Amino acid sequence: MHARDLMVTDVKTVAPDDDVADAFKRFARYPFSGFPVVDDEGRVVGVVTESDLVDLFEPDDETLWIPIGLPPFVDTLTYQIKPPWGDLDLGVDMVRNADRPISDVMSTDVVTVTPETDVDEVLDLLAGDDPDINRVPVVDTDGTLVGIIARQDIVRAFRDRRLD
Rank of each mutant, 00 (worst) to 15 (best):
M1F: 14
H2G: 04
D5C: 14
L6Q: 06
L6N: 08
M7N: 03
V8T: 12
T9V: 06
K12F: 09
K12I: 15
A15S: 09
D19T: 07
V20T: 13
A23Y: 04
R26N: 07
A28P: 07
Y30A: 02
P31Y: 03
F32L: 12
F32G: 06
S33P: 12
S33G: 15
P36C: 00
V37I: 08
V37N: 04
V38K: 01
D39N: 11
E41L: 04
G42L: 01
R43D: 00
V44C: 03
T49P: 07
E50Q: 14
D52S: 06
V54F: 11
D55T: 01
P59V: 02
P59S: 03
P59E: 02
D61L: 04
T63K: 09
T63N: 08
T63Q: 07
T63C: 07
L64Y: 08
L64V: 12
L64P: 00
I66E: 09
I66T: 10
P67Y: 00
P67F: 01
I68P: 00
I68D: 05
G69L: 05
G69Y: 02
V74P: 03
T76N: 09
T76L: 07
T76D: 08
Y79V: 15
Y79G: 09
K82D: 15
P83F: 04
P83R: 07
L90V: 10
G91D: 12
G91H: 08
V92H: 08
D93V: 02
N97K: 13
A98T: 04
A98G: 05
R100K: 03
R100W: 00
R100I: 00
P101T: 00
I102W: 01
S103Q: 11
M106K: 04
S107W: 08
S107R: 13
S107I: 06
S107M: 06
T114R: 15
P115H: 09
E116S: 14
T117C: 07
T117S: 10
D118W: 13
D120V: 15
L123H: 13
D124N: 09
D124Y: 05
L125E: 12
A127L: 12
D129E: 15
D130P: 10
D132K: 10
D140I: 04
D140W: 05
T141M: 11
T144Y: 06
A150R: 13
A150C: 13
R151P: 01
Q152V: 05
I154C: 15
V155W: 10
A157F: 15
R159D: 14
R161C: 10
